[in-house]
């Protein structure tokens, strides 16, 4: 495998907070990878370290087998940051010309227009007068200006309307077909599922799952058995069974999560806890995702 990005035991601590905790992964040429996780999971921090904007507290980041800040690396990457920014005092076309001049083999302006949906009107507008949508398009064009091999986006679709969003993913798809390596972060499972070939699922600064969307979905959408039971009854003993992944109460019902619901039923009768109104539920994917990433399991 042709390694493009590699993180080895990377940790980033701020004064009071470890934002990324001992993360390791490698990304090969042509992969489209989603960094998926809720707000505060450490996505931006991880991306900032990949881009060389933040220095890891421990561990190592390599891009194309070099340090992220080396010039030869910078010539091969393009990026769109979470906070979109523009250079005041210049028109869109001028900014594009300027940034293109930094790279050895930039994309022609015409191609940037086609890829990003910038209009002729946009091109003549002064940067400080751009609307949110126009800024996003400019920012996208700036990411592609140097014809990068590795493209990194931090929450790219936040603030885009449906049309621009669709157009954006279309372009990403097109770029992926050309063999570009693409990394993007998102907190929408749907987006990661649709656009990525691989998902790195982040929670509290660590990777909790790494796989194809279908693998991840299989992992997080667990089946559960739910029932009504005397609220005074302690349920700790059920935890002793390794087949049970999680137990929680919701709306007066107890939910037992497991990939093997048959076994759970067996256990319920075996332990004689007096469960009533037993149902087997196949969890909704989005719900399961939320539950997995929202942290605090409800204490039993």
């Amino acid at each position: 495998m042709n390694k493009i990005v590699s993180l080895t035991n990377v940790t980033k601590s701020f004064q009071h907070k470890t934002a990324v905790n001992d993360v390791s992964f490698t990304i090969g040429k042509g992969e489209v990878v989603a960094i998926l996780g809720p707000n505060g999971a450490g996505k931006t921090t991880t991306i900032s370290m990949i881009l060389g904007l933040l220095k890891p507290t421990a561990g190592e980041v390599q891009l194309f087998d070099h340090q992220p800040h080396e010039k030869q690396v910078r010539e091969k990457i393009g990026t769109m940051l979470q906070e979109v920014s523009v250079m005041p005092g210049l028109k869109v076309r001028e900014i594009l010309e300027l940034i293109r001049s930094y790279y050895p083999k930039p994309l022609p302006i015409q191609q940037l227009i086609e890829l990003t949906g910038l209009t002729e009107q946009d091109m003549k507008t002064m940067a400080e007068k751009l609307s949110g949508g126009q800024k996003r398009r400019l920012s996208f064009a700036l990411a592609l200006a140097g014809n990068p091999e590795l493209i990194i986006f931090d929450e790219p679709t936040v603030g885009m309307d449906i049309t621009s969003r669709n157009r954006f993913w279309e372009t990403i798809h097109h770029l992926a077909e050309q063999g570009k390596t693409i990394i993007f972060s998102t907190h929408y499972l749907q987006e990661a599922d649709d656009a990525a070939g691989r998902i790195l699922l982040f929670k509290d600064g660590a990777i909790v799952a790494d796989g194809t969307p279908s693998q991840i979905k299989a992992r997080i959408s667990k089946q559960s058995v739910s029932f009504i039971v005397d609220p005074e009854l302690p349920l700790e003993k059920l935890f002793l069974h390794s087949e049970i992944d999680d137990i929680y109460r919701k709306n007066n019902r107890v939910y037992i999560q497991s990939s093997n619901t048959d076994r759970v039923l067996e256990l319920l009768f075996q332990e004689k806890i007096g469960a009533r109104d037993i149902q087997i539920e196949r969890g909704k994917l989005e719900e399961a995702f939320e539950q997995l990433t929202s942290g605090a399991k409800e204490a039993i």
């Binding site: 881009l51 060389g52 904007l53 010039k71 910078r74 010539e75 990457i77 990026t79 940051l81 906070e83 920014s85 940034i99 930094y102 790279y103 700036l142 140097g146």
Partner: peptide, 8 residues
């Protein structure tokens, strides 16, 4: 910040 990611 953006400029720092470019080869400039």
């Amino acid at each position: 910040t953006f400029i720092r990611i470019t080869p400039l």
